[in-house]
């Protein structure tokens, strides 16, 4: 089955077009809609994958993703619960990840915020390429069920954000770690913990992305849609290139092609 993907945008979303392009390239049937449109037409159930793309929703004026999260819950909460119950996948990239944690969809679909993404330790916006460690081959790890299949143990993707520092109380972090919900960690080129700038924002436990326990909901600060073509890689002229971002997006499409 060719999955239907909804890229949901609002005022300040700015990665919708390239994210749509990435899903199209991976073989999906893609729609890009404004949240005001969805509020009016209530059609989330038509889709298999919901993607919240990057950007600065409402300028992140009250904190990253804050107002988008509010609207998301005000207008779409019950639809969203049905969407998840019916086996839909959710991908939140950058600002989308911020929305997923501020709505409390991540880490545990509880609709109550327990973790956050806050100001980078550098207190400014940074666009840089990072190395990311994947959870390894264990197929029982939630992220490996869908999104991170067939990836090397260390991959590279670009980040571009001002509020990407993953933070939560120790007790919450322990649960996330115990459940193996951490999908991606910032590392250095050798695949080990590197400090700044390898961990570009000061995230606790170097966390760059997490999933829910089922592995269906995935939020990450790096931008997979910015690495779907060999020319995206800064060193494409003299190094071999695997477009890791494309594989991540393609994995979600393949998941439905193989029957969901």
């Amino acid at each position: 089955m060719k999955p239907k993907v909804l890229i949901l945008r609002t005022a300040g979303t700015n990665c919708d077009k390239e994210t749509a392009h990435a899903f199209e390239l991976a073989g999906a049937d893609v729609s890009v809609e404004h949240i005001h449109h969805l509020k009016k037409h209530k059609q989330l159930s038509k889709f298999n994958i919901l993607c919240l793309p990057g950007g600065f929703s409402y300028g992140d004026d009250l904190g990253a993703g804050k107002i988008f999260s509010l609207e998301f819950l005000l207008w779409l909460k019950s639809e969203l619960e049905n969407f998840i119950d019916n086996g839909g996948l959710i991908l939140g990239i950058c600002n989308g990840f911020q929305v997923l944690v501020k709505t409390g969809i991540l880490p545990d679909l509880n609709f109550s915020q327990t973790v956050t993404l806050t100001d980078n330790d550098s207190h400014r916006f940074e666009d840089r390429w990072v190395y990311l460690k994947t959870p390894g081959p264990d197929p029982t790890i939630p992220a490996n069920k869908i999104w991170l299949k067939d990836l090397d143990s260390v991959i590279t993707l670009p980040i571009a954000h001002a509020e990407g520092k993953f933070f939560a109380d120790d007790s919450i972090v322990k649960i996330i770690e115990k459940n193996k919900q951490v999908a991606l960690r910032y590392v250095n080129g050798q695949g080990v913990r590197g400090g700044y700038p390898f961990n570009p924002n000061g995230s606790i436990n170097d966390i760059a992305g997490i999933t829910d326990i089922s592995g269906r909901v995935f939020g990450l600060m790096p931008h997979p849609e910015r690495f779907i073509d060999r020319h995206h890689f800064p060193f494409w002229q003299n190094q071999t290139v695997t477009a890791w971002g494309f594989i991540i997006i393609e994995n979600s499409v393949k998941f439905f092609e193989k029957g969901g």
């Binding site: 700015n14 990665c15 077009k17 940074e126 060193f235």
Partner: peptide, 22 residues
């Protein structure tokens, strides 16, 4: 350059910064 999102829109082929550690 790093404080600017120089990769949004997904069209970059040669970025403003290159080389080791960009």
């Amino acid at each position: 350059v790093r404080q600017y999102d120089h990769e949004v829109q997904g069209g970059s082929v040669i970025k403003a910064i290159t080389g080791i550690e960009n």
